[in-house]
């Protein structure tokens, strides 16, 4: 079942097209990664999904309800974890969570229970009466999440939820994301940290110039940019002993490059030949210092598709 559906959605700011005929479907239960360089249109797309920006053309629906026509219904089902920490420093943790949850209609004991659960979930149950101004960056980020989940939304949008925090808090947040997903929440996750996206997202869309330029699982995206496996063999002996023409004779090898004491062997992904490559070196009594199998990561995919690094 589609939880979010964008159909030919466009948004212009004057002459600038921020989102250009974007179509996308996000399935219930997914952790959906939305990547793109700065100015790609991610924030505009998210702001249209949560109703902060009007849609110029096309339509967006959440759980089948149109965000334009039934904005109250759609908003009730969404929780937003903004990139900028959006909490009140002069309200306690509990007051913060209760305030935002009450905007979703929670009252009385239900409100108290939901707020406490959200704080427990984010590991802040011992800080209910503390003011966020005394919190570390990681604790503020966790409170930022607690404020988004207390009303138990079906869709949670997390915009860079781990920016500028220590590894411990980051791990806590990533675990929380998985746990929320296990509890049935669908999550849209944006991050500049590729390893996070690669680690937790079930599907990823890469945006550039207002369009989705690639969509799929992490492996599917990697396969878009290369059909080769690369093996780097560093030798301990003199490199002059290596005969590249002999390596090229190995089944599946397409290219061999020698640089300093390293031999870079490119092979077709369809052929498994690592044992044969290593056998060449051992049979010719060339000592191997190290072997590294290089497959493209998401960063390489992103760079290849957009021409920019994610942090540019």
């Amino acid at each position: 079942m589609n939880i979010v559906n964008l159909e030919q959605v466009s948004k212009n700011f004057g002459d600038i097209t921020a989102v250009d005929k974007m179509s996308l479907s996000i399935e219930q239960g997914e952790i959906f990664g939305l990547l793109g360089p700065n100015g790609a249109g991610k924030s505009t797309a998210i702001n249209m999904i949560i109703g902060l920006l009007s849609i110029d053309k096309g339509s967006i629906s959440i759980l089948g309800s149109d965000v334009k026509k039934e904005s109250r219904t759609t908003r009730s089902n969404v929780g937003i974890v903004p990139q900028d920490i959006a909490i009140y420093e002069d309200l306690t943790s509990l007051e913060n969570v209760k305030f935002f949850a009450s905007l979703y209609g929670l009252r009385g004991k239900d409100l108290d229970k939901a707020a406490m659960e959200a704080l427990e979930f984010t590991g802040l149950s011992e800080k209910v009466k503390s003011f966020p101004k005394n919190f570390s960056g990681g604790m503020k980020r966790r409170l930022n999440i607690a404020c988004a989940i207390a009303h138990k939304p079906k869709l949670i949008i997390m915009d860079e939820p781990t920016v500028g925090i220590d590894p411990q808090s980051r791990n806590h947040i990533l675990q929380s994301v998985r746990k929320l997903n296990e509890q049935g929440c669908t999550i849209i996750y944006t991050s500049h940290y590729m390893e996070e996206v690669e680690e937790i997202c079930t599907r990823i869309a890469i945006m550039d110039h207002g369009k989705v330029i690639a969509l799929g699982t992490c492996d599917e995206l990697k396969s878009l940019i290369t059909d080769k496996d690369i093996v780097l063999v560093t030798v301990a002996d003199s490199i002059t002993k290596v005969r590249d023409e002999k390596i090229r004779e190995i089944r599946g090898v397409e290219d061999v490059e020698i640089e300093d004491s390293t031999v870079k062997v490119s092979s077709s992904r369809e052929v498994s030949n690592l044992d044969m490559i290593i056998n060449y070196f051992t049979s010719n009594r060339i000592s191997i210092k190290s072997v590294e199998s290089k497959t493209p990561d998401l960063e390489t995919v992103f760079l290849s598709l957009t021409g920019r690094r994610l942090r540019d």
Binding site: G51, S71, I80, P82, C147
Partner: peptide, 13 residues
């Protein structure tokens, strides 16, 4: 400035 207005308007307010 605290971006809490955006958060409030994301709720059914």
């Amino acid at each position: 400035e605290q971006k809490t207005a955006a958060r409030m308007l994301c709720a059914p307010v």
